[in-house]
Amino acid sequence: MRFYFIGGLGSNENHMSEFAHCFPYPITYLDPYKVKLESAKDLVDWFEAHADSNENTCIIAHSLGGDLARYLASRIPQMTHLVLLDGGYLNMNQILPLEQEIEETLAYLKQQVFPSLEEAVASELGDAENPSPTTIKAIQSSYRWNSDLHHYELDLDPEAVLSLLRLRRELRSFQVPLIDIKALFIGPKYEDEPDWRAQALETLDPSIKKLLLKDLGHDFYTAVPKLVSKEISNWIGICS
């Protein structure tokens, strides 16, 4: 079986490196945030251009990547397994209007500018203690130097990002039926769940095995990569 990983918005290959090191199978990182995907066909064509179509396939995907992966699962014949890491289950239209999401995203991209890479890293880490070298490298890799404006900025193309936000709404992946696909959902379990998230988890497709982890945040696969790897590996062994 071939394994692929699609991260969330703003992530890069370094974010999954510790998980990939723990995972017992070779896994290929795919980055949909460097290309402009404007339609469902663009998404399928992009995946097929990077994936081996001759073997059974499992996609492990985080956050927005989960929305893309769940749609791909319904369109790629060789897809047999799907792992959603806190993604692929939300109806964004019930959370906030697209116009507001676009406005807030653009504001965030404009805000994340720093005179030095050290300041960019410090801002991302916040109060985190003893960050791993991998975490620091992942943050550093998320930024690029803008020689015209003389600052570091997020290494994202705003137009490509906005295109993906629009596409997610069009795909409506949370409704996509997973026929003949073995699927696992792993997400954090918060003490005070927002109503919209609690409802989405309650109505998650019953064919998807659900696992909620306590005392973790949205990026839990970077915080506890060994645990996430173990849970996925055990699930694959049981359902294969």
Rank of each mutant, 00 (worst) to 15 (best):
H151M: 09
H21Q: 13
W196H: 11
D205K: 05
V35L: 08
L211A: 06
D195T: 10
E129G: 00
M1G: 06
E99T: 05
D192N: 14
A198W: 06
I232D: 06
S147A: 14
P177F: 12
H151A: 01
K230T: 14
L82T: 00
E193C: 03
L165D: 02
I59E: 01
I232T: 04
S123T: 10
Y152A: 00
T134V: 15
M79E: 06
K137T: 10
N91A: 07
P225S: 04
S142V: 00
M79V: 14
R75D: 10
F3G: 00
S141V: 02
D148I: 12
R70Y: 11
S142D: 06
L37M: 08
F3W: 08
D45M: 12
R169G: 03
R172S: 15
E48W: 09
S39L: 04
E129R: 05
E119L: 14
R169T: 00
S147V: 08
F47R: 00
D42T: 03
L9E: 03
A138F: 06
I139P: 05
P206V: 11
A138R: 00
D52I: 11
L117C: 03
Y143W: 08
G88I: 04
F185V: 07
N14Q: 15
S74A: 15
K214Q: 11
T222D: 05
A122Q: 12
I27S: 02
V113R: 11
V228C: 05
D155F: 07
A20K: 13
Q112S: 10
L109A: 09
E13Y: 11
G187H: 06
I6F: 05
Q94Y: 05
E231K: 08
Y25V: 02
I60A: 00
A49G: 14
S123C: 09
F174N: 09
